[in-house]
Design a protein around this nucleic acid. Structure first.
Length: 483
RNA sequence: GGUGCUGUAGGCAAAUUGGUAAAGCCGUCGAUCUUUCAAGUCGAUGUUUGUGGGUUCAACUCCCAUCAGCACUGCCA
């Protein structure tokens, strides 16, 4: 039997990192076993589901490289299937209509809480007589459909991550609602637990891999599988991703959606790599890998049981590792959108080579792609402001002369076609002025960059020279040095 | 309140069936390289596996108790 797994996001928000990590594990497991990875959009909640979220989710999965083999399927298009299943349960006496109003249910729960009892449906409508039913209908009440859960039933399964799991029927909250309220001659909107089981069965899902917040649902779903006469898949409940205080990472924790990470300048391979490391550890302890490389090694034996706190430092480090490895030609493609968004002045067509060199210069010092905005800022404008430290440097003894001499060479048409030429010019000035190279370099850094730190000076100078920004900057620096 | 799950250094984690705990990574600190920053390289730092018992020659691994955290407890998914 081939492995078939699925990711079943609900389009009630953008692709969340928790969902994405679950998708990663599913994808890895499918790839490892040469199985299929299916995308199913769980949009049975028509109130909260939105098409733009579906778009965000599919785009995010694609961006991460989590390509699916089948789908996307939409639950909203499969309602007949669910209604048939519900009808079957009704016909077999495994489900029934309950006429409780929300006020009645609320009153029941508050009473239970007051008595320090666990809130649960007390199955009060499980054995309604025909007369009672007609009476409720006469009142104009609608009915939900509840699936019977026997209190004395014990549900057990072997979880691929957690091992033996046991759940008592009485702890499942009473007979569960599987269809929303509707008039008695119809079946209302099917609910999550029912739809999931029908779909997983219909799609021949062999392994259900999801977050551990679904453990209680699993017990309920197993009962539904049995009632519907299908084989029960295997389950793997993965640990949750936690915030710094140890709670399930949620929207309240700030950045949690994949598209946000993307905007912030994280690369897909680094993010995917990091998500894989959250809860799983590779057998060879090599922590830098692609999803493709991880797949052959992936198994639930090495998935941790405890939740994992999200760590920005490590994500940053992973991202920087990917960035430092990228060739300039590849890097420039990733950086250009950020420079464009920042409104920097360049023409992609004519400046491509120049931009590529710049990307190569900045690459090794980038942590996030967005860092290229700040780090690249002064390459895109003819002149810039001078920092305090730079100004101080420019006003040191001998600096005005040194800059004037350099300026003179440039104006005399000194050619700066290569790094060697720049270096030659530097040593010429150093020799002629009888100064230390350090003073020359620091002063030129101050003059050209307006700051005392930044990327390699020689390379930066060459890049600036290609845009003819070095001359005006030098002029301005001389003025500053003499003031 | 109930049920379930989890508990190894600041974070992620490793440790085949009990057999020298903390490998590896991030972080932090330092050194080094360099015109600077970052990167890189090298080195240092963390201390007994939530706690208390028990079984055993031997326990992170097994048993009991206890504490804490988290998750779930919807006509959301």
């Amino acid at each position: 039997m081939t492995v078939r797994v699925r990711i079943a996001p609900s389009p009630t928000g953008n692709l969340h990192i928790g969902t994405a990590r679950t998708a990663v594990f599913n994808w890895l497991f499918a790839r490892h076993h040469g199985g299929q990875f299916i995308l199913r959009v769980e949009d049975t909640d028509t109130e909260r589901s939105r098409p733009e979220f579906t778009d965000n989710i599919t785009a995010g999965l694609e961006w991460l490289g989590l390509t699916w083999d089948e789908g996307p399927f939409f639950q909203s298009q499969r309602l007949d299937l669910y209604r048939q299943a519900i009808q079957t349960l009704l016909d077999h006496g495994l489900a029934y209509r309950a006429y409780d109003t929300s006020a009645e249910l609320e009153a029941m729960r508050t009473a239970q809480k007051a008595k320090k009892q666990a809130p649960r449906y007390d199955n009060r409508h499980r054995h309604l007589t025909d007369d009672q039913q007609r009476a409720f209908e006469a009142e104009g009440r609608q009915a939900v459909i509840r699936f019977k859960i026997a209190d004395d039933r014990t549900v057990q399964w072997h979880d691929l991550v957690r091992g033996a799991m046991t759940w008592q029927g009485s702890d499942l909250g009473g007979d569960m609602v599987i269809a929303r309220a509707s008039s008695v001659d119809s079946i209302g909107q099917p609910l999550y637990n029912l739809a999931v089981v029908v779909d997983d069965q219909d799609m021949d899902i062999t392994h259900v891999i999801r977050g551990e917040d679904h453990i209680a649902n699993t017990a309920k779903q197993i009962l539904l599988y049995e009632a519907l006469g299908g084989t029960v898949p295997q389950f793997a409940h993965t640990p949750l991703i936690l915030n710094p205080s140890g709670q399930k990472l949620s929207k309240r924790d700030g950045v949690t959606s994949i598209s946000d990470f993307q905007k912030m300048g994280f690369t897909a391979p680094a993010l995917a790599n990091y998500m894989t490391l959250l809860g799983w550890s590779p057998p060879d302890s090599e922590e830098l890998f692609t999803l493709e490389a991880a797949a052959p090694q992936f198994s639930f034996d090495r998935v941790n049981k405890a939740g994992a706190k999200f760590d920005w430092d490590k994500l940053d480090w992973l991202n920087s590792q990917y960035l430092h490895d990228r060739p300039a030609s590849e890097l420039v493609e990733m950086l250009v959108p950020y420079w464009q968004a920042a409104g920097y002045d360049f023409d992609l067509e004519v400046d491509r080579d120049w931009l590529t060199v710049l990307a190569g210069l900045l690459g090794p010092s980038l942590t996030r792609l967005s860092d290229a905005v700040e780090q690249g800022r002064f390459f895109f404008a003819e002149v810039m402001d001078y920092s305090e430290a730079a100004t101080k440097q420019l006003r040191q003894d001998g600096v005005a002369e040194l800059l004037t001499a350099t300026l003179g060479q440039l104006q005399a048409g000194a050619s700066l076609e290569s790094l060697e030429a720049v270096k030659a010019l530097v040593s010429d000035v150093v020799k002629a002025q009888g100064i230390k190279k350090g003073l020359m370099m620091k002063s030129m850094r101050a003059a050209l960059m307006g700051d005392m730190q930044g990327p390699d000076l020689t390379e930066s100078w060459l890049i600036l020279h290609q845009r003819q920004f070095d001359l005006p900057r030098l002029k301005k620096a001389v003025e500053l040095a003499q003031s």
